[in-house]
């Protein structure tokens, strides 16, 4: 049966398969790996020693980790059918605008809600671990989002399709072929709806997922604000951040 004028059930299944495969192949850590490391926590001593590091050192560490994770998101995007058919200008705009949001969704795989910790550099870390960054509000907002996304209990398929749909947002400024992006996003949302339906889920779950978008956007804006402030205080350190990080988050 046809789900819409130009998207059959077969299309939907093909899209789902492609997006899920791309997601699984480009996740930095498998769920099994993360599960195995669940009880690998930073000790209080280790946490204290990270808290005593300079803001510059801690920012550098986080910038390196975010940069590594972004490379996996680029690979995810490249494998989504239709993404590489867009002009390169639009591919770059979509990645620059959406990669942090994709990372925030992926983050809930690496979050342990039983002890409010997040996988960072080989072990699970509490919000206090990141104190040296001097951005308690940003860190707390990220942990809050992880907690609320975890509560949704997204399957890998739902996470994959949700990430792809966000990445392919047609409303990003300066897109030259936003209609083409919109068509891709519509198909991915249909696939997500279908997946939720098949999993016994409802429209309510999709609404709950979509309701996280403003929270995600505000985290992205807060990150940029903090980065700009950091750049004013420590221009040389900011200049030594990985070039890809500077490219993605530069003005």
């Amino acid at each position: 049966g046809a789900l819409s004028d130009d998207c059959s059930l077969l299309d939907i299944e093909r899209i789902t398969q492609n997006v899920v495969k791309s997601h699984i192949e480009t996740c930095q850590y498998s769920t099994e790996e993360l599960k195995r490391l669940t009880w690998n926590l930073y000790t209080p001593e280790e946490t204290r020693s990270f808290q005593l590091k300079s803001a510059e050192w801690m920012w550098q560490q986080c910038a390196v980790h975010i940069t590594n994770a972004i490379q996996y998101v680029v690979e995810f995007a490249k494998r989504i059918s239709g993404f590489m058919d867009l002009c390169q200008n639009d591919q770059i705009i979509l990645l620059k605008a959406g990669c942090l949001e994709v990372l925030l969704i992926r983050m809930c795989r690496a979050y342990n809600s039983t002890n409010n910790t997040l996988f960072f550099n080989g072990k699970f870390a509490s919000p206090q671990f990141f104190k040296a960054l001097g951005c308690d509000d940003l860190v707390n907002a990220i942990f809050e989002l992880a907690k609320s996304l975890c509560r949704l209990q997204l399957s890998e398929e739902e996470m994959a399709l949700f990430s792809a749909a966000i990445l392919l947002s047609p409303d990003r400024p300066w897109l030259t072929e936003s209609q083409q992006v919109q068509k891709l996003q519509e198909k991915i949302y249909l696939a997500l709806q279908h997946s939720l339906h098949m999993g016994g889920g409802s429209q309510e779950k999709l609404d709950k997922m979509a309701s996280k978008l403003p929270q995600m956007k505000s985290i992205c804006n807060l990150h940029i604000d903090k980065l700009e402030f950091f750049r004013l205080l420590h221009p040389e350190t900011a200049f030594s951040f990985p070039p890809l990080y500077r490219e993605v988050f530069g003005s």
Binding site: E75, R79, Q88, I92, K96, L244, E247, G250
Partner: peptide, 19 residues
């Protein structure tokens, strides 16, 4: 374009999956 040379390169590199 010049400002995004790493993204350009990453997008142009062939994925391992493509062989």
């Amino acid at each position: 374009t010049e400002r995004h040379k790493i993204l350009h390169r990453l997008l142009q590199d062939s994925s391992p999956a493509d062989g």
